[in-house]
Design a protein around this nucleic acid. Structure first.
Lengths: 237, 237
DNA sequence: ACAAAAGTGTTGGTGCTACACCCATGA
DNA sequence: TCATGGGTGTAGCACCAACACTTTTGT
């Protein structure tokens, strides 16, 4: 085997962060993504995924978390590795390998995010032309989120500890961008929920029960130890 | 953002290679993996996944292919990224980030592989204690292969251009380690196959038709462009 | 004729979709 | 009592596992 390359390839992490924001007029929720404006070349002035270099003494997920906090002040409730992008020509200024993560934050967290000239939220399905291959990366992260929502409990990461079935259903509807039958949705997720006993009163209708997941999902990426379906290639019909 | 770390972290690729070998006595097929013996510290003498450093001018999948060819002389018919392993303590001799791929080779290819003192095939489900975190990595790759087999056409990568339904079923049975009902298996995969017209005669029974996939799978990893389900976290029940 | 594997038909169960219907509350 | 959403029941359909059965070859 060749000698160890101590002149190694620059290694970066980036993160696709998703938050739900409810549209003021329609009332419907939708996915939004925070992006940062590049101040240096290449792609100076363009919007890009938050990210940065991996330090020698920190793990990959740690590096993602740290960069998130530094650039956007966000602390996600869910973080998972997406893919390692390493095409030789992805950056015009020289070879960079990026390990990309995707993250979910709650709405209250998202509001606390620093927004300004160099950090701004964009609708996930209507993005400008971004730096590097970041449009492709976000498309992939979106596909993964939408796919994974249907067989895992990640919707929890958008909500608080307890929630009503309507809350949960609205998260699914916002992510999947289609209405879901409340009756069938209830049955689909029923086995993963336990009622807390509390209800929400105040609405001019029957008070909905508050539920809790019967098993909490991992907050932060712990690698492929706990396995779920996710992936990198479209299923065939 | 901090200055670019031109003293970057060493970046390696490794590959989990699967081949089917039919056991001489039982006649049943099983998954085998080629491993290489480490000649340097750390873990000198231990068996490990084939791999090496990523060169500055080659893509990640290219690096995986090259290392495969150099260390085992194998040319896989399928190659896909598995996961980027980057724990700070995965190597006792210093930080290394490994992008791991998994690959499938046909039986005829596998026979051509160099086997000797420093390259040897092992049954995938009965491995010795390997170097680094390679046992964990292989467990994950095995899970991914078994999961993906059920909703994609990767079984094709173990076979030639044409094959009988029994050939295909035996691949599935070997990977999943359980017998499958021939009648139901036929119906499950029927929509993905087209008969070639040819049959196999010579057996002392009705000659089976030779089939071909109606759509070829990609031979080599092309990133997350073509999407299928795969993944990194276990599905909930 | 018989053995063996290819290939087809059928039946019962399970889960999902669509939609009718009842329940509990505020106004 | 009415409007509103919470919550339950149910019929139809698709899919799947199990297994009986027919087909086609070699010996």
């Amino acid at each position: 085997m060749a000698a160890s390359p101590r002149d190694g390839i620059p290694l970066a992490v980036s993160t696709v962060i998703f938050a739900l924001r409810s549209d003021a007029e329609s009332g419907l929720g939708a996915l939004w993504i925070p992006l940062v404006r590049r101040i240096t070349e290449p792609f100076g002035g363009r919007w890009a995924l938050p990210g940065g270099w991996v330090r020698a003494e920190e793990g990959l997920a740690d590096a993602a978390s740290r960069n998130l906090l530094e650039t956007t002040a966000l602390e996600p409730t869910y973080l998972e590795q997406l893919y390692a992008f390493g095409n030789v020509d992805r950056s015009p200024s020289g070879r960079v390998v990026s390990i990309v993560y995707w993250a979910l934050v709650r709405a209250d967290q998202a509001e606390r995010a620093t927004e300004g000239e160099n950090v701004r939220w964009f609708p996930a399905d209507d993005l400008p032309e971004l730096a590097f291959d970041h449009n492709v990366i976000i498309d992939y992260a979106l596909w993964r989120l939408r796919t994974k929502l249907e067989y895992s409990r990640i919707a929890q990461a958008f909500l608080g500890e307890t929630f009503t079935l309507t809350d949960l259903r609205e998260v699914h509807e916002a992510v999947l961008r289609r209405p879901l039958d409340p009756a069938n949705f209830r049955r689909q997720v029923a086995s993963t929920l336990v009622p807390t006993g509390a209800v929400v009163s105040g609405g001019r209708h029957r008070p909905p029960k508050l539920y809790r997941y019967n098993q909490t999902i991992e907050v932060v990426d712990n690698g492929p130890i706990s396995r779920e379906k996710t992936g990198s290639n479209r299923a065939i019909s």
